[in-house]
């Protein structure tokens, strides 16, 4: 938990779904028996119908992935979404994590629009402000394009 320059406390918008800090990552459960990853974390049973395990490890998902698809929100979504005034459209990406073989949806960081994105692009997970109230800044994971020219394999690095 940290504090912003304006004295607000920074807290996750939801508990237990991601880490914060320099190299934030999504948290998932991994089935001890069959290895299936589950995000969001905290399943009671393994979703694999051929596996009856109820034991899971908490793991971090890879911080980089490939854009499976993307869009944007030109109009303000209804509550419980909370948007700053005036409303600024934002991009949304579904990102494929290669090692874990799953796709995770998330907002794309603020200054990146659909024109800056393409299916297959490499992106990295960051933690950023979702919304604020008088005392708190609420955090969520977002996707950020990895600068072009960087050699990446789009797989877990931690």
């Amino acid at each position: 938990m940290t504090t912003t320059a304006s004295g607000k406390t920074r807290v996750p918008a939801i508990d237990g779904w991601f880490t914060t800090g320099d190299e934030p990552a999504l948290l998932a459960s991994r089935c001890e028996a069959c290895g299936t990853y589950v995000f969001p974390p905290g399943p009671t049973w393994c979703p694999n119908p051929a596996c009856s395990s109820t034991a899971f490890d908490e793991v971090r998902l890879g911080r980089r992935g490939r854009v499976w698809s993307f869009t944007d929100a030109r109009y303000q979504p209804p509550p419980p979404f909370r948007a700053p005034e005036p409303y600024e459209p934002f991009a949304i990406a579904a990102v494929e994590l290669v090692a874990e073989q799953l796709v995770v949806l998330g907002q794309v960081v603020g200054d990146v629009g659909c024109d800056d994105l393409a299916v297959g692009d490499e992106v990295e997970l960051v933690v950023d402000t979702l919304f604020e109230d008088d005392d708190h800044e609420y955090l969520v994971w977002k996707w950020k394009p990895v600068a072009t020219g960087v050699d990446g394999e789009g797989r877990a690095d931690g």
Binding site: A13, I14, P40, W68, S69, F70, T71, D72, A73, P77, P78, P79, P80, F81, A83, F90, I92, A94, L105, G106, Q107, A118, V119, G120, L130, V140
Partner: peptide
């Protein structure tokens, strides 16, 4: 269903658009 609006602002058209973009790319 509550969480997708709260955490991402993902409306129904968000999902329709993801599939549409996928058709364009594939």
């Amino acid at each position: 269903d509550w969480l997708r609006f709260y955490l991402v602002g993902a409306t129904n058209p968000t999902y329709f658009a993801l599939y549409a973009r996928r058709r364009m790319a594939c």
